[in-house]
């Protein structure tokens, strides 16, 4: 009997590790960020400037970073969603078997390119292109970052959307065709609506990937902590800020705590997105 119990304990232990890790991350981030709430106080985060090192007055407003992340993410999704959904529809519904066998490996390769490599590509190829196309002083801006991020997100979103489309029962398609619907009518009126929860989940995952991505955006977005809605302005994201400054910040300083505050905000945003994604899946997923 002790064997049974031992194995059970082992399994419970393994299963709860992830819970433990998440809790610990929250605790640790919170612990490092907490002193910031006392001095200078959380309101300092809502400043419009991020100037963490200064001879006059240090400012820790994360609004420019939030807006930077939001702008890059929004642009990236504007590119990613149409590309991936249409791509997934083509691969799942229209492509000939041969085309599918060529397309799928390439998409998988795209997904496996390390982000630093993509960042490098962005720096030497994409940024000059954006620069000359729009006649700018620099190609390092939100748009370049967004294009690069969508290159990273597209393979994931395509694969998961394609799975969702493939898992739509064939009987729906047959019923639609038997009613005299064309292939395109069947795809857009039956298959895509039925796969919508999966497609939304795929997009949510893509958003998660885009918000969390650090290396590539740091290399190509220009890293200017300004509040802007112009895609052609340089921006700085939350992740890039943490990555760029964490290595040089004095341990335990206000700046150090501010970086952890950014980490907490980032975690809350991704957590929120996850919850929304789950809700969407729960509400609409049952209808299949």
């Amino acid at each position: 009997m002790w064997k049974n119990r031992a194995v059970q304990t082992l399994l419970i232990g393994a299963a709860s590790t992830s819970v433990l890790i998440v809790v610990l991350i929250f605790l640790f981030l919170g612990k490092e960020a907490a002193p910031f709430a006392l001095t200078p106080g959380l309101s300092a985060l809502f400043d419009s400037k991020w100037i963490p090192v200064s001879f006059q007055r240090e400012r820790f407003g994360i609004l420019p970073l939030l807006s930077g992340s939001a702008l890059v993410t929004l642009l990236a999704m504007l590119i990613t969603i149409p590309f991936s959904v249409l791509g997934a529809i083509y691969i799942a519904e229209l492509a000939k078997p041969l085309e599918r066998e060529i397309l799928k490996p390439f998409i998988e390769i795209l997904a496996s390119i390390p982000s630093v490599v993509l960042g490098f590509f962005g720096l030497v190829v994409l940024a000059p292109l954006v620069k000359s196309f729009f006649g700018l002083n620099t190609g390092l801006n939100a748009l370049t970052g967004a294009i690069l991020l969508s290159i990273m997100a597209i393979p994931t979103v395509i694969s998961i959307s394609e799975d969702a489309l493939n898992s739509v029962p064939h009987v729906y398609k047959r019923a639609s065709l038997a009613l005299g619907a064309s292939q395109l009518q069947t795809i857009f009126r039956v298959t895509v609506p039925a796969a919508l929860p999966g497609i939304i989940a795929a997009v949510m995952l893509g958003v998660g990937r885009v918000i969390g991505e650090t290396m590539a955006v740091m290399m190509v977005t220009g890293n200017a902590a300004i509040i802007t809605a112009n895609p052609l302005d340089p921006v700085r994201t939350m992740t890039a800020t943490i990555a760029a400054e964490m290595g040089e910040v004095p341990f335990g300083s206000v700046h150090y705590q501010a970086l952890f505050c950014i980490g907490v905000v980032l975690l809350l945003v991704t957590f929120g997105l996850n919850v929304i994604g789950q809700q969407v899946l729960r509400r609409y997923g049952m209808r299949q």
Binding site: P169, V171, Y172, R174, A175, S176, A178, L179, G180, A181, S182, Q185, R189, V190, P193, A194, R287, Q288
Partner: peptide, 23 residues
């Protein structure tokens, strides 16, 4: 055509019947 296994779309009753005329 009517199939062996009933295969209504995951839509409302109205939308199921209206599907054909709509398309």
């Amino acid at each position: 055509m009517v199939f062996q296994k009933s295969n209504p779309f995951p839509k409302s009753i109205f939308e199921n019947v209206a599907y054909g005329p709509r398309i």
